[in-house]
Design a protein around this nucleic acid. Structure first.
Length: 515
RNA sequence: GGCGCUAUCGUCUAGGGGUUAGGACGGAAGAUUCUCAAUCUUCAAACCCGGGUUCGAUUCCCGGUAGCGCUACCA
């Protein structure tokens, strides 16, 4: 029997997740490497939903999965939503196909019916372990003549189907690890179809991959030990064995497999934190891959598609480093079109109650005041975004605009040193005196000259001059440059925002009162 | 337990029989700025251990150790 289906694609790869939860970075990285390889080779990237595990699979996770992948920028040529030449791209209800190949294997003498009960097997395994032997299937039913087996099955005896593992070492090639060899003595004859008729994962994958004409199986290295069984299956079915590439595990800081235990590590988590997709992609690509020379770190998606090389992927496990991801994220935030960052940042401000809800805003769109808010907000983001690791830190950074609190400013331990400085009092008083007579929107230039005047009057300069003023106006002795900050404070105060932005004058008054 | 995979700065990695073992994140110091951030400059920081092959191994081979994975009628 020839390999099912037909195609002329020289490279066909797939990502075959189970819809059992959120897409984790480990899986996302596998998807990414498949995708990069396909794009780099001009091949096809296929998405296949592995939902044979009916108990754990949920439809809503599938939608989430597609969404996460799309957000990341990983797009597929064939999949459950777009179809393709080898449907179905979801495994449920494909059982007849698996059953048919199982029967064929039995007829060809490559597999056999097994009547052992789970209790029997369990006992044998325990005994083998106790005696220090391999806990592999002893082959009890291996040599039952086919006719006899059929008879027993006819009588209603429950039978699973087991593949006969040939009596020779199993060797296969792995692009990441080279040749890998397993002795057949440690590989049990695996069950491929349960007595219930439900096929087993290791079998399903092979049938699906073969039917979809997958040329390169790129997956996590937790499947490496399963591979000999799968290779035996390809061979028993007379199908061409694909190339394999087993990717190393991604570890947490404690060198254990990265998981929810380590915090937010799903693609959705990163999106919700305000990590840009190209930053995540760039970072994940660097986990186990580096370009020739190894000196370049920054690759946007297009560049990755061009430069990526599966043959250069490292076999050793990698520890996920949030700091480096944030560094890349900062880079891409600064690189990105500011309008895009403003759009992405918006929801974080809305959530923090600092901007009106989207619906309210749209309702108010025709009004002139609204576009002023937009302009102002864009400037706020432009000022704050370059110094942030991820976009969700923005509202907190904007506290100097929205949440000015004189009492807090004075009490803050960080400001203690500034407040205690001998010249602080005169600087504050001089500045406060001056602001009294200023017209209301204080211009940045005017602010500048006021500070100069204070300097002249008090003889205080540098940090001793600026720090107290900074604390008085923003609540912190550090922050963005005054030239840009003053106009934002003054404009913000006159805009219809959910939270009132206090003007410079209001701040000074409150501060002087609190002292 | 058995089998398999892995092993270069704290982390991600480049390199490869003879190198000052390269880059990046993070760290430290300095320059700049009113400050923080950014930026620039500089510095510290690594070849797991033991054998073998070799004139010479971090690099090749073997063993050990450690970490991880698999060892199901789970995926």
């Amino acid at each position: 029997m020839s390999q099912p289906g037909s195609t002329t694609d020289k490279v066909r790869v797939r990502f075959a997740p189970s819809p059992t939860g959120q897409v984790h970075v480990g899986n996302a990285r596998t998807a990414l490497f498949n995708w990069l390889f396909a794009r780099q080779q001009g091949g096809k990237f296929i998405l296949r939903i592995e939902d044979t595990d009916l108990e754990r699979s949920e439809a809503r996770y599938e939608a989430q999965l597609l969404e996460d992948l799309k957000w990341l920028g990983v797009n597929w040529d064939e999949g459950p939503d777009v179809g393709g030449p080898y449907p179905p791209y979801r495994q449920s209800d494909k059982w007849e196909v698996y059953r048919a190949y199982g029967e064929k294997l039995v007829n060809d003498g490559k597999a056999y019916y097994c009547f052992c009960t789970q209790e029997q097997l369990e006992r044998q395994r325990e005994q083998a372990l106790a005696e220090g032997r391999q806990p592999i299937y002893p082959g009890t039913c291996r040599d039952i003549p086919l006719e006899a087996a059929r008879g027993r099955k006819q009588q209603g005896e429950a039978a699973a189907i087991r593949l006969k593992i040939p009596e020779k070492p199993i060797r296969f090639h792995d692009i990441v690890r080279g040749w890998v060899e397993f002795s057949n003595e440690v590989v049990s004859d695996p069950i491929i179809l349960r007595s219930s008729g439900v096929p087993v994962y290791n079998y399903v994958v092979v049938v699906d991959d073969a039917e979809m004409k997958i040329t390169h199986v790129i997956r996590g290295d937790d499947h490496l030990s399963n591979t000999p069984k799968q290779v035996a299956l390809y061979e028993a079915l007379g199908w061409q064995v694909p190339e394999f590439a087993h990717l190393s595990t991604i570890l947490g800081p404690d060198r254990e497999r990265l998981s929810k235990r380590h915090g937010a590590t799903s693609v959705a988590n990163f999106r919700d934190m305000g990590v840009l997709p190209e930053a995540l992609m760039n970072y994940m690509a660097l986990l186990g891959w580096a370009p020739t020379g190894g000196t370049r770190e920054i690759f946007n998606p297009e560049e990755l598609c061009k430069e990526f090389d599966l043959a250069r992927v490292t076999p050793s496990p990698a520890v996920f480093d949030f700091e480096k991801l944030y560094w890349l994220n900062r880079h891409y935030i600064k690189e990105s079109d500011p309008r895009r960052i403003v759009e992405l940042a918006r929801r974080f401000f809305v959530k923090a109650g600092l901007l009106p809800e989207i619906a309210d805003r749209e309702a108010a769109t025709p009004e002139a005041g609204n576009s002023e808010v937009e302009d102002w907000f864009a400037k706020v983001v432009a000022l704050l975004a370059p110094s942030v690791n991820k976009l969700d830190e923005l509202p907190e950074r904007a506290a100097l605009l929205f949440n000015f609190d004189a009492d807090l400013a004075i009490a803050a331990p960080d400001n203690a040193e500034v407040m205690a400085a001998p010249t602080t009092g005169q600087v504050l008083d001089a500045f406060a005196m001056k602001i009294q007579s200023e017209p209301d929107p204080l211009a940045a230039e005017r602010f500048k000259s006021m500070v100069k005047e204070v300097q002249k009057e008090t003889g205080v300069k540098g940090k001793d001059l600026f720090h107290p003023i900074r604390v008085m106006l923003t609540g912190s002795h550090s922050g963005p440059e005054f030239d840009k900050l003053i106009p934002l404070i003054e404009q913000g105060g006159r805009l219809p925002l959910p939270v009132h932005v206090k003007s410079v004058k209001e701040r000074v008054q409150a501060f002087q009162q609190a002292r």
